[in-house]
Nucleic acid binder design. Structure first.
Lengths: 249, 249
DNA sequence: GCAAAAGTGTTCGTAGTACACCCATGA
DNA sequence: TCATGGGTGTACTACGAACACTTTTGC
């Protein structure tokens, strides 16, 4: 709670400095879609424990910061993106991991976030990480700490949220084609979607996307140029866009 | 993160005792349905700050506990339910609240949980709370700290989860009628559902409920006795059971 | 012309909606 | 007997699934 006076149940007369304190950190599962594959932003650890292993970016929450603020700050530092850009990114709290033994050094409670980013801003390994890179989801060895678990939770959450929210546009640049949007669903879900039906579904959902007025069109390689759209004002999808397995399972 | 070595970005050479530490607590939004209304378990605070005000039950996470463990322990203490019963209750992490100023005394990060309980085990105000009571959702003044926000988040989450999970059975006793199950949906969503359609939907969803073999029937007052069911093995609802507003909004 | 992707149209089946109606019980 | 809630049946409608077909580009 934080409810009753600090002396809660066990320590009668709670002294903040009395016993080993908790550290609070944030971990970031930063996902993007590139080359028809889901990619994760990972950093290579410079120090023990788990030195040399890949891990999720993140860091300590500062004394006067909320976890959300800390997450955005870390994201900006790790990716090298300008603060203004980071401020607009979709960042969402995933859950908190609090196993007493998840970090061998001390008691660390970590608030995990999921961030969805569009383009492919190649990270510049900044900060204190030895290296930061986009790696295809699953094509990295086991991650440090319990980060495999966090990453799996993030992927599952994102997949589920695509069904009933307009979240997919967070993976796309400001202006995108319906083909690109469909790519997001197909990549995250690992399925193929019927193009005509997907198009109808998206266009008939009020507020999901908004056509860009000027008739600019953009080519995605070869084929007919596609109309451009922007994200609409809606956040929820009613009715939802279920993954194909949902119908059979 | 918990990623790199303790000295993360800011504190060069992280000393756990160097500056004011974080305290980590759990807050519990314990919900139940009784008398066709959604009820919340609240405790009356015994000490400052917010002495005398209602608050969500909860408490500090102990040094060797995970947040989940702490939540179950607190739940058992506050409700007076036997540990075995509490072990089987549906407990789910909601989110973590980390605003630096949410507790005036010190820096407290709280992991909030939602618990869904069936019957009406009248709490015995145990523990250190002055009093613990079930109060109808909304019929309590403003809660202490940011507990109004937590409670609202919990209700919203539960309402949404009823749509695509089998969570509703967590509000019911081990054996229940379809009328009782429908009551859960109607109470949480605040709508009326068509009885015949609800029945079909539930019965045709594989694994949602399982009929109790022996033809025991139970009366819910007057009217025809209803068949009894138990929760099935399924956890997800495919396709979902959308709230009526979902179709029009 | 051919391949590839966008965009339009149509058919079909499933599932949700809105009812009407019968059944079993308590007062 | 009536009120109340359980249980069954049915017609209507909406929406997703599947697929045929046209259009516009690059090679």
């Amino acid at each position: 709670m934080n409810g009753r006076t600090p002396p809660p149940r066990p320590p009668e007369g709670y002294d903040p400095h009395a016993f080993e304190p908790f550290a609070v950190t944030v971990d970031l599962a930063v996902l993007t879609v590139r080359e028809e594959r889901l990619h994760v932003l990972l950093v290579q650890r410079a120090h023990e424990p788990h030195a040399g292993e890949w891990a999720l970016p993140g860091g300590f929450v500062l004394p006067r910061e909320s976890a959300e603020t800390a997450a955005r700050r870390e994201l900006a530092e790790e990716t090298g993106l300008p603060a203004g850009t980071v401020a607009g990114l979709h960042l969402e709290q995933l859950r908190t991991y609090s196993d007493p033994d998840r970090d061998p050094r001390m008691r660390v409670v970590s608030v995990a976030f999921t961030a969805l980013v569009p383009g492919l801003p190649e990270p510049r390994g900044g900060g204190d990480a030895a290296e930061a890179r986009w790696l295809p989801y699953g094509e990295h060895g086991p991650l440090a700490f319990d980060h495999d678990r966090i990453l799996a939770d993030a992927r599952e959450r994102v997949g589920a949220k695509l069904e009933y929210t307009c979240l997919a546009t967070a993976f796309c640049p400001p202006e995108f084609t319906l083909g690109e949007l469909r790519q997001v669903y197909e990549t995250v879900w690992g399925v193929e979607l019927d193009r005509p039906n997907f198009r109808r579904k998206v266009l008939t959902t009020p507020g999901f996307v908004r056509p860009v007025e000027g008739p600019p069109r953009r080519t995605g390689g070869r084929g007919k140029p596609a109309a451009l759209y922007r994200a609409g004002e809606a956040t929820a999808l009613h009715p939802p866009l279920l993954r194909p397995e949902g119908r059979s399972a």
